[in-house]
Write a protein that binds this DNA or RNA. Structure first.
Length: 313
DNA sequence: AACACCGCCTGAGCGC
DNA sequence: TGCGCTCAGGCGGTGT
């Protein structure tokens, strides 16, 4: 499940293979994974109203909207989203698309012989100049999608509602974002407008590192809690990137490589197993509508400094 | 305003 | 072997 580290690994692998390449053609096999500027908010794939009572049919998507004729110049990431920027050499025009991978999305650079198929949910196939000929957007569950942005300013607008990127979140940023939130800290961490890039896996891992119980009200975190949590978030994301991300089931980077950070998860997917720090059985419950695993013994349910054991006698 | 909750979607895993 | 059920979860939309 691509969260920030996995998306960053995809970004880096695409950067190696895609920068400087020119897009020659595109085949759109499912229009509804694309959200164009005139489409209903959330796109045709997500909007039930748009599906049941279409006010108008989806506008045609032109090849140029999907970067055909453009040379890939830069790939940016904010949180879990990627922006692929292209430049058209002759008139100096620029264009961009924004990709969310959702739960099961993949962007794959492949040789010309492996064009994917409808059956394997390859929804968009770009043909590139040069040796490894194809860029494929696959997404079996279609929680992801591609937004047509058209230019860098439009990417900024699409990203305006996202909070600061979690990879370099500071304690001060975290503290000010959480100041008025009564909801559980786990819920706030999953909110992309608070902090962009953390999903269920890394929320649990970061809270474990910071020794903070997931159900604590966000605004009850002390300065010291915020310091440890910011450090925990940055640390776990960086280490995960260094391990190529976490591959639970589907995730691979743009070159098809799986990650290995799942082998180093302290809590995610380990309910009932011993806490790596204190050995107690890890607890599991639904917090913020998500399966949550934590250690009741070493993740604190309050920020009060633990009382020292009163001396006997 | 802040937050809870729903539904989208498919494949894996499980019990029978 | 195969069927039906549950679960996984990012996130936009809707309800409170």
């Amino acid at each position: 499940m691509p969260e920030l580290p996995e998306v960053e690994c995809v970004r880096r692998s695409l950067e190696r293979g895609l920068i400087g390449r020119t897009v020659r053609a595109v085949e759109v096999r499912r229009r509804d994974v694309i959200t164009a500027p005139g489409d209903p908010p959330g796109g045709f794939a997500r909007s039930r109203a748009a599906r049941n009572h279409p006010v108008r049919p989806p506008a045609p998507v032109t090849p140029a909207d999907l970067l055909v004729g453009f040379t890939i110049e830069r790939i940016d990431r904010l949180g879990k989203q990627l922006a692929i920027h292209g430049v058209d050499a002759r008139p100096g025009r620029r264009s961009a698309i924004v990709v969310h991978l959702g739960m099961t999305g993949q962007l794959l650079l492949e040789g010309p012989s492996s064009a994917g198929s409808q059956a394997d949910h390859s929804h968009i196939v770009w043909t590139l100049d040069g040796p490894s000929g194809l860029l494929i957007f696959r997404d079996p569950r279609r929680f992801g999608g591609v937004r047509l942005a058209l230019n860098a300013e439009a990417v900024d607008r699409l990203w305006a509602d996202l909070g600061p990127d979690a990879l370099d979140i500071t304690a001060d940023e975290l503290r000010s974002a959480l100041r008025s939130a009564r909801r559980p800290i786990k819920s706030a961490l999953l909110d992309q407008s608070v902090l962009a890039g953390v999903g269920n896996i890394y929320a649990d891992e970061a809270l474990w590192r910071a020794r903070i119980a997931p159900g604590r009200p966000a605004r009850g975190l002390s300065v010291d809690d915020c310091e440890r949590l910011a450090a925990g978030i940055r640390g776990v994301l960086r280490e995960a990137i260094d391990s190529g991300g976490s591959t639970i089931r589907d995730y691979v980077d743009g070159s098809g490589r799986a990650g290995s950070f799942q082998l180093r998860h302290a809590v995610y997917g380990r309910a009932g197993l011993p806490c790596p720090r204190c050995g107690r059985r890890l607890a599991s419950a639904v917090v913020a509508q998500r399966t949550t695993v934590w250690c009741r013994a070493c993740q604190r349910a309050s920020s009060r400094t633990r009382k020292k054991q009163a001396p006997r006698r």
